[in-house]
Write a protein that binds this DNA or RNA. Structure first.
Lengths: 143, 143
DNA sequence: CCACATTGCTATTGCCAATAGCATTTCTTA
DNA sequence: TAAGAAATGCTATTGGCAATAGCAATGTGG
């Protein structure tokens, strides 16, 4: 059966990303989180009092779509909000959030290592540069 | 603002794929198609009388989710069904489908070329091998 | 002060994947 | 060949996530 799609980098890129994300989500579901939760938690840990809007900019998630994501983490008591001014609220990890993030981080780390190991050693140094090049170029067309 | 995510290959992979797909869909929307439509059309062109189930296997789309996809292309008169046996039906491109696919192919080709050009020439030969390595490993975990 | 931008939000829509279950048809094999 | 197993196409539903339009409250700069 002919598969003309597998010679198209764009197609393979999408398939690889989808499969990788699905695998990560499978692992993360064991601790009740999704990849989007973890990316936000990691961001808030690195940037305490980060604004919901600014987080959205870094994650390329629109303000409107940040609402249910943040709400979920609030409901789970993984983060809190502290008013920065009258309209903005800085996000902070709770102790529970910090603790759960450590577990999530272990899962993510393992996932990332597996990703690295999955490609031939010879090609490994080129992985991140190539991905960043792809990312940057696509980004410049939309943002 | 710290962005600890951009050093994670898995994260960058997802972001790159999402951005690339969004860009492709933007272009394809001009001719009323989506990337999933085009991938199926390309597959049917390469494998006339391909079964809906087999197409799903190649595209990694479950049988249930193939239904609305195929229905849409039928409604648009881009494909037809010809019974293969009592339960299976082979998919075929209509003349209209062939014509529209040519336009889609031009868009896809341009997209793929841009993708290639977006990364430094030195890294270009490594693109497809790396993506395939990522795809294969993720695939082996789920399929 | 006033026009403008920003923040967080509601509400809706669309795309796509996942699951469970069903009727029909085909294949297997005992 | 009859019976059980598998395959095919489908319905119906759910969940995750992105995109859009619009709103009230708040902040900012001329």
């Amino acid at each position: 059966m002919l598969d003309p799609l597998s010679s198209l980098p764009g197609y393979v890129l999408s398939r690889a990303a989808a499969a990788s994300l699905a695998e990560l989500n499978r692992e993360l579901s064991k601790i009740g989180l999704r990849h989007s939760d973890v990316s936000l938690l990691i961001l808030v840990r690195a940037n305490p009092r980060l604004t919901q809007s600014d987080a959205g900019k870094l994650l390329d998630i629109q303000r409107a779509n940040m609402v249910p994501l943040v709400s979920r983490l609030l409901d789970l008591s993984l983060i809190t909000k502290k008013p920065v001014d009258g309209r903005s609220q800085g996000l902070l990890l709770t102790d529970k959030g910090k603790k759960l993030l450590k577990e999530a981080q272990a899962i993510v780390d393992h996932h990332e290592v597996q990703l690295q190991l999955s490609i031939p050693e010879r090609l490994r140094p080129h992985l991140l540069p190539i991905l960043h090049a792809l990312w940057d170029s696509s980004r410049s067309k939309s943002g």
